[in-house]
C-alpha cells in the first residue's frame, strides 16, 4: 500500500509544472537571439528539456490523489501558477541568465526535495530530470559569473525565495550553496504572498503565451475542419 501524499504536494507539483512549461517556452523564444551560436543551441535544448519535465510533472497529478487543475485554466491567465518572472517574454539576455541560474536551480532544489521525499511516484519519475538539470545548472552558473551583478539576478532570487515559500529555509540554503554565493539581501513581503501561486506580485502571463498554452495559436495556422472537407 502506498504512503499517503502529504497535503499541499499536488499544489507544489502543479506550480512546478506550470513554471517549467513557461520556462521552457521562454528559453525557446531565445533560441536564435543569444550572444553565441552555442548558447542558441543550449537554449533550444534546455527549452525542450523543461517542456518535457512539465509534461512529466503534470502526468503525476492524477496519481497524487487530487488534481488541482480546474476549468478556470481555459479562461484565466492568472490560473497558471508560475512565478512573475515568467509572465512576460524577456527583453534582455541578463533576464535569461538570471532565470536559468537562479529560478531553474530553485526548481531543481524543490525536485531534489520531492525525490528525497515519501511520495513514490515522485521519487521514481522525477529522478531523471535531475540528470538533465545538471547541464542547465552548469550553463546558468557560468553565464551568471559572466554577466556579474544585475537587477535581474536580484529579482529572480527574490522570486525564487518566494516560490520556495515561507517555510523553505533549508531549500534557500541549498540554493545558495549550489550557486556558491550568499543569498543577496532580499525584501519579501510574506503578507502579500499567495500560497497557491507561490508569489507575491499580482499579474499573469501575457495573452499571446496564454493562447499558445491553450493551443489557440496552433489552431490559427492549422487546417480547419471545413477546409479539410472542402479539399476532399
Amino acid at each position: 500500500m502506498s504512503k499517503p501524499v502529504p497535503g499541499g504536494v499536488s499544489d507544489i507539483v502543479l506550480s512546478l509544472a506550470d513554471c517549467k512549461q513557461l520556462l521552457g517556452l521562454r528559453y525557446a523564444e531565445w533560441c536564435s537571439a543569444t550572444p553565441t551560436l552555442e548558447a542558441d543551441i543550449a537554449a533550444a535544448a534546455m527549452g525542450l528539456d523543461d517542456l518535457g519535465h512539465s509534461r512529466v510533472l503534470a502526468g503525476c497529478l492524477s496519481e497524487l490523489g487530487s488534481d488541482p487543475r480546474g476549468p478556470e485554466r481555459e479562461t484565466e491567465p492568472g490560473a497558471y501558477r508560475n512565478v512573475a518572472f515568467l509572465d512576460q517574454p524577456w527583453t534582455e539576455w541578463n533576464q535569461f541568465v538570471a532565470a536559468n541560474a537562479i529560478l531553474d536551480t530553485a526548481f531543481t532544489v524543490m525536485i531534489e526535495s520531492l525525490v528525497e521525499g515519501p511520495v513514490e511516484v515522485l521519487r521514481t519519475r522525477l529522478r531523471k530530470m535531475l540528470a538533465e538539470e545538471r547541464y542547465h545548472f552548469l550553463h546558468g552558473r557560468s553565464w551568471l559569473n559572466e554577466i556579474g551583478p544585475d537587477p535581474s539576478v536580484d529579482q529572480a532570487w527574490t522570486e525564487a525565495v518566494e516560490w520556495l515559500g515561507p517555510e523553505g529555509g533549508e531549500l534557500r540554503k541549498r540554493l545558495a550553496a549550489k550557486l556558491e554565493r550568499p543569498e543577496p539581501k532580499l525584501s519579501v513581503d510574506w503578507s502579500r504572498w499567495d500560497p497557491i501561486r507561490r508569489r507575491s506580485r499580482p499579474g499573469a502571463i501575457d495573452g499571446h503565451t496564454f493562447d499558445m498554452l491553450r493551443g489557440l495559436e496552433e489552431r490559427r495556422y492549422g487546417v480547419t475542419r471545413a477546409e479539410a472537407t472542402a479539399g476532399g
Binding site: 552555442e38 543550449a42 535544448a45 534546455m46 547541464y135 552548469l138 550553463h139 557560468s142 553565464w143
Partner: peptide, 12 residues
C-alpha cells in the same frame, strides 16, 4: 570554461 563547455557539448 569547462562548465559551459560541458553544457554546450551535451546540447550540441
Amino acid at each position: 570554461d569547462d562548465d559551459l563547455a560541458q553544457a554546450y557539448a551535451r546540447a550540441t
